[in-house]
Design a protein around this nucleic acid. Structure first.
Length: 435
RNA sequence: GUGAUCGUAGUUCAGUUGGUAGAGCACCUGAUUGUGAUUCAGGUUGUCGUGGGUUCGAGCCCCAUCGGUCACCCCA
C-alpha cells in the first residue's frame, strides 16, 4: 500500500522556498534579541506532563497536549509552550546567576489544534523571557523588544497594536470591589474574554448571570468601558483600589515616556488563558481584518518558580509564532522576495569533456569565499539563460572551447555585461562578483 | 468537538441536461538557433480522494467515509 506523501495533519514540510522565509524570520528574531542583550537557550522537546499541569491551564492539558506514557511509565508531553521549560531551567541555576536573566529561544512546539488560518499543530515560537528584573522595568524591556522586532520588518503603528492589561488590577476588581467567590470570579474571567466578541445585549445577559446586584453590574460595565490611563486612574480612586492599580498605571505612564504610546493600548478585556500570569498581560494584534488572531502574547508571572519549591523569582516574557508572524508580514507586504535561492555564480559547461574542469574551477572559486552552484554535467547553450533565471542566478560563468583552448566568460544578467576571464587569473572573478 | 465549503495529470484549472477524460504551465527527447527568456516536431503523467448505491451507462445524481480550507472555541 502506498504511503501518504503529505506531512501529518497540521504540520508543515519546509521546502527550500519555505525554509528561506523561516530563516529570514529566525534571523530577525536572533538579531533583535541579541541587540537587547538576550542569550539563546534551548530545552528538551519532551517534558513531564506534570510540568504543565501545575500552571498552564485546563484547556491546554485536557484538549491540546500531545502526551504519552514512556517505557518507564512516565507520563510525558511534547512541549506545547516554552515558559514552563524556561522556568524549570531557571529554577535550577537562578541562585548563582546574576539578575536580570535575559534569555530567548525559538522552539518548535506542538498543540493538538484544528488547523486553520494562522494556526497549525506545530509551530516555531520566538520566546523571550526576563527573570529578576526590577518592577515594571522588565515589562518595559520586553515590550520595547517586541516593538523593535516588528519595526525591523518595516511594520508601522497602523499595522499592529499591543493590548495591555494587568491581572492584579482585574483581581482587585473581582475581590475588592465585586467581592466575588472564587467560582464566580472564574466565570467572570471567561465573560471578560468574550466582551468584545458577543453582542452588547448578550454580554449583559452573561454578566447578570454572575453578578446579581445592579450595583455590581454597573461597576463591572464601567470597568469594561475603561480605555485610557485617565479613566483607569479615576475608576481606581473611586473604588478604593488605587494602591493595587498604582504599579500598572505607572507602567503605562512609563510606556508613554518611552514614546511607545502609538503602539500600545490599555484593554480591560485582555486576561489570557494561561494560569501562571499574575501581573501585566498583553497580546499583540494585527490590525488587518484578514488576520483576526494574536501575533504574540505574554505577561508577567511572579510565582512560577514556586512549583519547583524555589524562592519566588518574578519573570516576564512573551511568545510569538512564526505562522502568525508570516501572515502578518505577508498581508502587509513586508516580506522581501525570497522565491529564489541566492548564490554568487552559476558555473556551466556546454561540453561533457569539461565536466571535471567545471568542478575544479568551482572549487577554486569557493576557496575565494564565493558561493558557487556548479551545474553537474553539460548543458545545452540555449538552456543556459532560462535555467539560470529559473534558479535565480544573476551571474553565470560559461566554460567553452571553440577549438583553441578553454575559454571562460562571465555573464552578468543584471548589467548585461560579458567579461572574458583569463584562465590563469580566476582571482579577478571575485572582484566582478563581489563588486 | 460544532458548522460551512471544496476534493479531476507534477501544478493551475476546464469538463455543458449523466454517454467509459481535456487545456495552459511544468517536465522529457530530438532538430534549429551561438550569447537574454526563440522556433518546430514528438512524448510522459490520472484507479476523476475512497467505498457503496441508483442507472443500460456516473467525474457529474444519492449515501457514507477520509482529506484540505475557512469559521466557532481558544490563542502563536
Amino acid at each position: 500500500m502506498a504511503l501518504n506523501k503529505k506531512p501529518y495533519k497540521g504540520c508543515r514540510d519546509f521546502f527550500p522556498k519555505g525554509m528561506r522565509v523561516r530563516n529570514y524570520l529566525f534571523h530577525h528574531m536572533c538579531d533583535v534579541a541579541e541587540k537587547f542583550g538576550f542569550e539563546a537557550y534551548d530545552g528538551p522537546l519532551l517534558e513531564e506532563v506534570d510540568l504543565y499541569k501545575a500552571k498552564s491551564g485546563e484547556e491546554l492539558i485536557n484538549d491540546q497536549i500531545y502526551s504519552f506514557t514512556d517505557r518507564g511509565d512516565r507520563n510525558v508531553a511534547i512541549r506545547p509552550e516554552m515558559t514552563p521549560t524556561v522556568a524549570r531551567m531557571v529554577a535550577n541555576i537562578h541562585k548563582q546567576e546574576t539578575k536580570p536573566i535575559r534569555w530567548y529561544s525559538i522552539p518548535n512546539l506542538m498543540r493538538y489544534e484544528k488547523p486553520q488560518r494562522g494556526r497549525v499543530r506545530e509551530h516555531w515560537q520566538f520566546n523571550v523571557d526576563i527573570f529578576g528584573a526590577p518592577e515594571n522595568l522588565g515589562e518595559l524591556e520586553v515590550v520595547s523588544l517586541v516593538i523593535q522586532f516588528l519595526k525591523s520588518f518595516g511594520a508601522k503603528s497602523d499595522m499592529f497594536a499591543i493590548l495591555l492589561n494587568d491581572r492584579t488590577l482585574v483581581d482587585a476588581v473581582f475581590n475588592d470591589i465585586l467581592n466575588l467567590e472564587a467560582e464566580s470570579a472564574l466565570k467572570l474571567y471567561k465573560v471578560i474574554d468574550k466582551a468584545k466578541k458577543v453582542s452588547p445585549g448578550k454580554l449583559d445577559i452573561m454578566i447578570r448571570e454572575i453578578l446579581l446586584t445592579e450595583e455590581q453590574f454597573i461597576i463591572f460595565k464601567e470597568y469594561l468601558a475603561l480605555n485610557s490611563i485617565e479613566s483607569l486612574t479615576k475608576f481606581a480612586t473611586q473604588n478604593n483600589i488605587a494602591q493595587k492599580s498604582e504599579s500598572f498605571i505607572q507602567f503605562l505612564t512609563m510606556c508613554q515616556e518611552l514614546e511607545l504610546s502609538e503602539f500600545i493600548e490599555y484593554d480591560p478585556t485582555i486576561v489570557r488563558g494561561l494560569d501562571y500570569y499574575t501581573g501585566v498581560v498583553f497580546e499583540i494584534f494585527d490590525k488587518h481584518p484578514d488576520n483576526n488572531r494574536a501575533i504574540a502574547g505574554g505577561g508577567a508571572y511572579a510565582n512560577l518558580l514556586k512549583i519547583f519549591n524555589e524562592e519566588p523569582l518574578g519573570g516576564i516574557g512573551f511568545g510569538l509564532g512564526d505562522v502568525t508572524l508570516r501572515d502578518f508580514l505577508e498581508t502587509h507586504k513586508l516580506l522581501p522576495d525570497l522565491s529564489k535561492a541566492s548564490h554568487d555564480v552559476f558555473v556551466v559547461n556546454v561540453e561533457d569533456e569539461h565536466n571535471l574542469y567545471n568542478m575544479t574551477i568551482s572549487n577554486q572559486l569557493r576557496e575565494l569565499g564565493i558561493k558557487v552552484e556548479s551545474h553537474l554535467g553539460k548543458i545545452k547553450f540555449n538552456k543556459i539563460f532560462k535555467l539560470a533565471q529559473s534558479k535565480g542566478h544573476s551571474k553565470i560563468l560559461i566554460i567553452e572551447d571553440q577549438g583553441d583552448g578553454i575559454e571562460l566568460e562571465l555573464k552578468d544578467l543584471t548589467t548585461n555585461k560579458n567579461t572574458k576571464i583569463d584562465i590563469n587569473k580566476i582571482n579577478q572573478i571575485k572582484d566582478y562578483i563581489k563588486g
